[in-house]
Design a protein around this nucleic acid. Structure first.
Lengths: 219, 219
DNA sequence: AGCCGCTTGTGAACGCAGGAACAAAGTCCC
DNA sequence: GGGACTTTGTTCCTGCGTTCACAAGCGGCT
């Protein structure tokens, strides 16, 4: 007996996270109710699409009035599973890794880094944010001890697969990969990839496509 | 006279960038030809999809043999518009901005940062990578002088729209936005968004969905 | 109490991306 | 020179995501 189907499209989940952020802002501003139109505008999406996204959670609005800001925020918090802080480990403390470890957007949104790891002896022992960088050898122990369920990989491409394997073997079930290689993970482990240079290249293509005549005139 | 339709789907363009990276690696390794199956495996996609992606560029392989690594790489380089280095400016030199300015993956792939900007006087004058952080006032002058066509925003959310407006007014045609707000840009300016906390939240949801013990039963 | 306007939630149509199967073409071997 | 194998390029089909448009429900006003 499950009145609502458990399957929520990934694209919808991504937008729910955006709605949650907007709702938090609105709640801080003292707003009590919002209409789908206003919320959609603040989130940068279509109002009808927003309502369809929310319909996956069952009815959570009042017709003729709109959505209760606090209630909807709490509902989204529960559905997205960010009610209790989730323990994350980060492997590869280079420039990008350090930035992520210090990124306020994570800590304030239900995620807590409980371990930073690097292979370079020069980095081990350094403090980044409020954590100390540890040797890669301790990875499995820390994952087990903290019950970390999320791993972030910001290592060079060559070692990303090895790190992925170790994370998966240690019990991590979700991996966010910034290394520019496709990772193979065992069943039961989700991998998401963020490729920053690809984003730039898509942007470059779109800009070039727009002006097909003599665009690279940087001289 | 345009033998091939100019419309290439965005999803395809993103994958073309991945193929280009793999091809570069293969070329460095001395490979001369590759089959679609091998290339697809290295890129983490379906072979049929890869061939379909490449078909947007017209025939560029030899049946019975495969693709010429060097030729295909050059073709992709041309299509993606990364043949000549593109000038980029980066606004918001916090942790993330510093990491991006230093990220080797950009410089080696046809992108060159020509200006780093921040509003905080404490950061102005600091060296990041091989550039000096400049005052935000100089943004327009630098964009004009260098002909930068790409802007990257890593500022706090509150000022992202203002920066976006100034970039667009100065002549930047493509913007990569890391701030967690939807940006409105005039026609002719492309905006792509990368939201790191959303990626983590999607991951958290998928991990939670896999183990539905004690979901938020708010009833 | 009844009506009206506003907003949500849902159903259907459209377009797009992804995957699989098939035909064309070139090469290697006999 | 001919046949067969390999690999590309294309075509069809299925499924998903998005959008538009309508019906249902609730509050407020008369």
């Amino acid at each position: 007996m499950q009145p609502r189907p458990r399957t929520i499209p990934e694209a919808t989940v991504a937008r729910l996270a955006v709605y949650l952020r907007v709702l938090t802002t609105l709640a801080d501003g003292g707003r009590s109710t919002v209409s789908s139109g206003e919320l959609a505008s603040a989130a940068g999406v279509n109002p009808a699409g927003l309502r369809k996204d929310l319909s996956h959670l069952g009815p959570c609005g009042v017709r003729g009035v709109g959505y209760d800001v606090g209630a909807l925020r709490d509902r989204l918090t529960g559905v997205l599973g960010v009610g209790s802080a989730r323990a994350c480990v980060l492997v590869g403390i280079g420039n990008l890794g350090s930035a992520l470890a210090d990124y306020a957007g994570f800590g304030t949104r239900g995620f807590e880094f409980v371990g930073l790891f690097d292979a370079s002896p020069a980095r081990i022992g350094q403090r980044v944010g409020d954590l100390e960088v540890r040797a890669l050898d301790e990875l499995e122990d820390v994952v087990t001890a903290t019950g970390a369920s999320i791993g972030v990989i910001t290592t060079p491409a060559e070692v990303a697969q090895t790190v992925c394997d170790r994370l998966a073997a240690a019990g991590v079930r979700s991996i966010l990969n910034f290394a520019p290689v496709p990772l193979a993970a065992p069943a039961g482990v989700d991998v998401r990839k963020v490729d920053l240079s690809v984003e730039l290249q898509v942007l470059a293509f779109l800009g070039q496509q727009r002006v097909p005549a003599g665009v690279g005139e940087s001289a």
